[in-house]
Design a protein around this nucleic acid. Structure first.
Length: 751
DNA sequence: TAACTCACTTAGTAGAACTCTA
DNA sequence: TAGAGTTCTACTAAGTGAGTTA
């Protein structure tokens, strides 16, 4: 694909243009003391098993190259390049997408009720903390009005009209939990058919019951002992509680890691009495095995509970859910996502996190900030306690917040993805990505031009943007050193994260990426790039140490400011959403064939989904049972083949018999054998498709892209077009999250 | 303008819940 | 019906990006 990005030789600029490079370097260069980074990387490499991963990545790359820009946009580059100057005159200012000016892409919305570009500008949301100027309203579609607008269709006004989660049945009674589960197709609130708030207001009325706190610590029975240096030792309640956190994790790899052990021990000692502190000085001498056994036994006992006991627990959970799991937001009952406060425990930071093992302390009511309406019934703190604060901020979506003690970050209780507040935002996200589709050609042309800029900062920005666009890299915010695992994104890439090959494996200008991204997931990719990008990278790396920033004059803030100028609401992450969705759409078109049956079509869908997951580097550890389950499946396939051969033999016999007898009965027998063969063939095919799908999915997680990057309307449209039940693509939770898309997208929807 | 704060989305995983099969 | 295998959900860490402060 890089071929169509090529430029003529005369456009290659010599390095002399950048003589100021080093002068500025120190100014912009951040201090990196990643002494351990290389070691960590090596460790990570060996952990992942290089050869396997290489194969995976090579395939990944091939797939990527195949699928990239299937929308045909790059084909337009050459022609557009010739007309660039002409175009620039026309579009000399910014690329703020005014619909009347956009005629490059004709992308009509094929929706029942979606007003064109209803989410015209995320700036509408951006101004949440400032008062908007009246001028801002000029760009808003007329359809969007405030609730105060008398002509606007109001949000459902009656509290009794709550039907988001539970609605009245035909008799006008509220169904119980079980009936509700069976009667899924109840009338739902179609918030997407109503007007949205403006001015950053998220709600007008909010009432909830507050959070559910973690249950208090229950001391261990006296027969479960902790041993120090081989001798039993009775611990104080506080020390014992923290000890149990460690004991519960004894089977986990975490407890073998030095950093985890060190952090745990340090924090544990803080909870000890002076006497305990004086005695317990070495973690190696601590024996938690009896505690560990006790918890294991408890788990087993839970599993072995009778049906009745299990039902009792289920009912209790349901009661808590009904009491605390919902709120009233603007006259609608909405499900809360996480109404339980995180229990105390040991921090499980991912990758080589410097704080892993630290004690996550217990959250008390005095730590909690409640957010609700002034005119609502405030949640009650537990008896004898008080909230830290009760506030009434309707410019935010959270209900409860607290500050955690590990990183000092704020944690929130928010609404479920099926709620209006989350759904609107999700819909808006895809609309922004669709607006990018309309001007992505121009943006690509621009960053290609910028590769030639006389200014280093512009070149860096342009190359970074190219990576973000081409490889779906994350933006890469700067991180506080020593506070988190050493991971990077595009803007924070360091010299040591890439290798340049003028020629390798029969390809020219290849860049090899090898770094740890979000969640310390390794990103490894070998990509041929355009010559100009390659030359620029050589330049950026000149006179730098491995741990220097590759883009020393760029950060996400600079990049996003630039993107904002190119398109209203454009940020680095919009490219990921755009490229994921456009890839899915293109792949579905390419892979789905009319004559296939439903299982084969679903395989095609999963393959399209997989292409996106590969693009976004959504990896997973292969399931522990993978090999075994594949083996089982293969056994089933073999048995089915055997069964098919037998059925075919029987059919042959029946045919021969019918030839001789020539009576009705034998004819019927032939028909029935034919049907049997057909049925077994179908079953075999289904099994084979399942095996292929599972094998291809070994290391790829499809869920993340499905939930976060793929415009659900593409999937809904595909289902409608090919008569695939939506349940085959989205499970119940996903259907709830994407209810808006399921309702509005028709079979001819185009992203 | 760098550092910090805040609000939100995106992410992988553990274990619960469900389904299938012998 | 047990238990093995699979799917779903809850959980919470780790990102992004806008706004604020010094």
């Amino acid at each position: 694909m890089s071929g169509d990005h090529s430029h003529s030789e005369d456009q290659v600029i010599t390095t002399s243009v950048f003589s100021d490079s080093q002068k500025h370097k120190d100014k912009f260069k951040k201090e990196h003391k990643h002494k351990d980074h290389k070691k960590e990387k090596e460790r990570e490499k060996s952990k992942h098993g290089n050869s396997d991963h290489k194969d995976f990545s090579d395939k990944k790359h091939k797939d990527k190259e195949k699928m990239k820009h299937k929308d045909g946009s790059t084909d337009k580059y050459k022609d557009k390049y010739k007309e660039k100057r002409k175009e620039e005159k026309i579009k000399s200012f910014d690329c703020k997408v005014k619909l009347e000016k956009e005629n490059g892409f004709d992308s009509p919305l094929h929706l029942k009720s979606e007003p064109e570009n209803i989410f015209h500008s995320p700036k509408n949301d951006k101004s949440l903390k400032r008062e908007r100027d009246d001028d801002d309203y000029e760009i808003k579609p007329k359809k969007i009005k405030t609730e105060n607008d008398k002509k606007a269709k109001k949000r459902k006004p009656q509290v009794e009209d709550i039907k988001t989660v539970k609605t009245k049945n035909k008799k006008g009674e509220m169904p119980d939990g079980k009936k509700k589960a069976k009667k899924e197709p109840e009338e739902k609130w179609k918030w997407w058919e109503e007007e949205r708030y403006t001015d950053g207001v998220k709600w007008k009325f909010l009432e909830h019951k507050g959070p559910v706190f973690a249950p208090p610590y229950e001391p261990l029975p006296s027969n479960v002992r902790f041993y120090y240096d081989g001798k039993p030792m009775v611990l104080s309640a506080d020390a014992e509680e923290v000890a149990t956190f460690f004991a519960k994790m004894l089977d986990h790899e975490y407890t073998t890691k030095d950093v985890f052990r060190k952090n745990f021990f340090k924090d544990w000692r803080k909870e000890m009495t002076p006497e305990e502190k004086a005695k317990i000085t070495d973690l190696k001498k601590c024996d938690f095995s009896e505690m560990h056994q006790y918890f294991k036994a408890q788990t087993e006992a839970r599993k072995a509970m009778t049906k009745e006991e299990k039902l009792k627990i289920k009912e209790e959970n349901e009661r808590i859910l009904q009491q605390f799991g919902f709120c009233i937001m603007d006259n609608h009952k909405e499900r809360i996502a996480n109404f339980r406060i995180e229990p105390p425990g040991l921090f499980r930071g991912r990758g080589d996190h410097p704080k892993m093992g630290m004690l996550k302390r217990r959250i008390r009511p005095e730590d909690i900030i409640i957010n609700c309406s002034k005119d609502s019934k405030y949640p009650e703190p537990p008896p004898g306690t008080r909230w830290k604060e009760v506030r009434h901020d309707n410019k935010v979506t959270w209900l409860v917040s607290w500050t955690e003690n590990i990183q000092g970050s704020i944690k929130y209780i928010m609404l479920n993805p099926s709620s209006r507040i989350k759904g609107e935002k999700d819909w808006q996200k895809y609309e922004t990505a669709r607006r990018l589709k309309k001007c992505v050609d121009r943006i690509r042309n621009q960053y290609r031009e910028d590769w030639k800029s006389k200014e280093m900062r512009i070149r860096q920005r342009a190359v970074a943007l190219y990576f973000i666009d081409k490889l779906a890299l994350r933006a890469g915010n700067e991180k506080e050193e020593g506070e988190t695992a050493d991971t990077v994104g595009c803007c924070s890439l360091r010299v040591e994260h890439i290798k340049l090959y003028p020629e390798i494996d029969g390809q020219e200008y290849v860049v090899e990426f090898d770094f740890l991204g979000k969640d310390s997931i390794r990103y490894y990719n070998k990509v041929p790039v355009e010559k100009r990008v390659f030359k620029n990278l050589q330049l950026f790396m000149e006179n730098k140490e491995p741990d220097d920033d590759l883009f020393d004059r760029l950060n996400t803030s600079i990049l996003n400011k630039h993107l904002q100028e190119l398109m209203d609401g454009l940020t680095a992450k919009v490219f990921r959403t755009y490229n994921a969705s456009i890839t899915l759409q293109a792949q579905l078109k390419e892979l789905t064939s009319e004559e296939e049956n439903i299982p084969a079509k679903i395989l095609s869908y999963n393959r399209a989904n997989r292409a996106v997951a590969i693009l976004c580097n959504h990896q997973r550890a292969p399931p522990k049972t993978f090999e075994k389950s594949m083996q089982n499946l293969q056994t089933k396939i073999d048995a089915k083949k055997e069964q098919l051969s037998a059925a075919k033999r029987e059919l042959k016999g029946a045919k021969a018999d019918a030839k001789v007898r020539k009576d009705e009965k034998s004819k019927k027998a032939v028909e029935s054998k034919k049907k049997a063969v057909q049925r077994i063939e179908d079953q075999l095919m289904k099994l084979e498709v399942q095996a292929t799908d599972r094998e291809e999915n070994k290391q790829i997680a499809l869920g993340t892209s499905k939930l976060n990057y793929l415009d659900p309307r593409i999937s809904v449209a595909w289902c409608k077009k090919w008569g695939i039940p939506i349940e085959k693509i989205y499970n119940k939770t996903q259907r709830e999250k994407f209810a808006w898309a399921i309702d509005m997208a028709e079979k001819d929807y185009e992203f």
